[in-house]
Design a protein around this nucleic acid. Structure first.
Lengths: 349, 349
DNA sequence: CTTCTGTATGCAAGCGCTTGCATTTTTGCT
DNA sequence: AGCAAAAATGCAAGCGCTTGCATACAGAAG
């Protein structure tokens, strides 16, 4: 086969390579590569010629090859518990948008709240050549952290801020946030509280939130016995059932704090079913301040969480870290208790 | 440097390669590669030896290299309008879980409902070596489709089913679904309708839904003049405003169909603010049947959409296509009108 | 006109893996 | 035991790109 033939056949076959561009513009592949990656190192004249060839051939770099040669993929990974929880999806959206701004793409994996699965996903993303990783919360197997360390993988923990943890994180102090909310509740005279939370095993966020409630109670000299905690999976339906369970306690709590707005919405619905008026008979609060909080009746008192800022901030920190500038300190973002109708004064007994 | 030194230095340096494994287990790199990819082509005995080496060295394949050599990345891409809409996030979750089952990872991009941005994202994902692509809806630039064609990229359109479109899709018939819902509404005596929808430009799903309402009205010999359509961005707040706008029409509609549950929830909230009772004074319906539908008061009549099945089905079809078996026909999944309290008989005039 | 700098470009060696083909070993028969 | 066929393994050529170093060539300086 003549060189001539070869060329035309290749052109026909489709996907042009660096070499095709080099040939078309009469320079070496090295120059083309530089044109694309360090334009300033190439004469304006050749650059124009090369770019023209790139355009006419419809050339697009092969990232696998680039990654192999340059040891950098331009891909960041994120492992979230689940995308079903809108909260993580929103954070990811922000993360993704910021990354896109830097020409980085997002590889997504979900752990279903399982540390083992998460470890597997971390392995997968590392193997896939992720340049950096976004993780949710601090709780995970030591093996996972060892892996991250060993591969010197830039990574950040979001959705949590815990100064006692050494690794880089961006988020809020779940404990403090929940303590503030609980304090608002106690201020209104409630003395027996219920908490509906997602599983606390392997989940520092939920654990901290429950601890926050305890903190608030302790500060008011209430006994831990006055707190009723029920764990349940995510969902409005499960929230409803958990609420019912709590309401069966004797004496029953006068306020129920839920770990997120969806659980709270379920609780609200169940309260209605049970003929309990909110907040007259019982107060209910949510967490996250999603749209749901304003949609339900009565509107939910909740805690506004900086999802967007966490996602975007995490992206920025990781981008910087990848270029060698690892931020010194974790970033604490603030939350805000948003008071709405679902929280009222404790009923007179 | 002696071979001995070299080995130990490499071990020290970290990331082991196929060659390290080959050396450690006394076979060729080809055998190791086969061990990992086509285990059945290797003796059990050697396999055991190789796997042992893999384990002790903590070897993990470099996917960039693999992709480069095998022309297959094991990465599928998905471009959704946004992750902020829980509906897409849920579908993606299903998609992702199914992919994970096949050892495939998910690259996510969002288009923010912009065809230009989407085209860019398609380019990016192709360059990134995605083996297949998941897209939402049929509307996009011809250039995007040309690109897909040219690169022979397996792709599927989800969230829509339109037999008149040639390309592979999995979803439901938005028009038919909405027509069914609208028919239910008309059956209850409503003769003037309002529709709150997301932008219809570049969005076949919303366009079809509005068309579905028109279909239903036409079937009952109602004039198009009796339909009031308002476009608005996604969000409860915007839904509320759109509802207010519609309620200012004279004569005002007695039922308002919303393109999704969030908009409907906003409408419901606004109705309350305006002192309108739902469904006595005005009926409201949603779409998607998310948890929100059951959370609000009154509960929303909505259309249940098979998000999970779409995500999972799309993954399956793409996996098959990648292996050469492109499904012949698009798949139509069914929806279901879920009647709840927000829809009632038209008020007596 | 030569020598020296500095900049633009080319050369070619990989990056770590897969895979077609060649070679060796094993298996099943006679 | 001897042979062909089948199975297992090895060889080595890439896959498309980046990048350290060598080379070429420009203009400045002598």
């Amino acid at each position: 086969m003549t060189e001539q033939n070869k060329v035309s056949l290749e052109a026909e076959a489709g996907v042009p390579t660096l070499e095709d561009v080099a040939r078309a513009s009469g320079v070496s592949t090295a120059t083309v590569s530089r044109c694309l990656n360090e334009p300033e190192r190439v004469t304006e004249q050749t650059r124009a010629r090369v770019m023209e060839a790139v355009r006419s051939l419809g050339y697009a770099p092969n990232f696998s090859a680039r990654a192999l040669a340059a040891k950098r993929t331009g891909i960041f990974g994120a492992i979230v518990p689940t995308l079903e929880n809108a909260i993580f999806a929103k954070g990811l959206q922000a993360f993704q948008e910021e990354l896109a701004r830097h020409g980085i793409t997002l590889l997504v994996a979900s752990s279903s709240y399982s540390p083992a699965l998460e470890e597997e996903q971390v392995r997968a993303l590392i193997a896939r050549g992720a340049d950096a990783l976004l993780l949710i919360g601090h709780d995970r197997t030591p093996e996972t952290y060892a892996l991250l360390e060993q591969r010197q993988m830039p990574h950040i923990v979001a959705w949590a801020y815990d100064p006692s943890e050494a690794r880089l994180s961006i988020g809020f102090d779940n404990r403090k946030a929940m303590k503030r909310l609980a304090t608002e509740v106690l201020l209104r005279g409630h003395a027996r509280l219920g908490v509906i939370t997602a599983a606390v095993a392997n989940n520092d966020r939920t654990r901290e939130r429950v601890a926050g409630v305890r903190d608030a109670m302790a500060a008011q000299d209430l006994s831990p016995d006055d707190l009723r905690v029920v764990e349940t999976p995510y969902g409005a339906e499960t929230g409803a059932r958990a609420f019912e369970e709590i309401m069966r306690s004797d004496p029953r709590p006068t306020a129920v704090l839920c770990a997120n707005d969806v659980l709270a919405a379920g609780a609200l619905a169940k309260a209605r079913d049970l003929g309990l008026r909110v907040p007259d008979d019982v107060s209910v609060t949510g967490f996250d301040d999603t749209e749901i909080a304003q949609i339900v009746t009565p509107q939910l008192t909740s805690v506004r969480v900086p999802h967007w800022d966490m996602g975007q901030g995490a992206a920025r920190l990781l981008v910087a870290w990848r270029s060698g500038e690892r931020a010194k300190d974790s970033i604490e973002l603030s939350t805000e208790v948003v008071l709405r109708g679902s929280l009222g004064a404790a009923p007179q007994e």
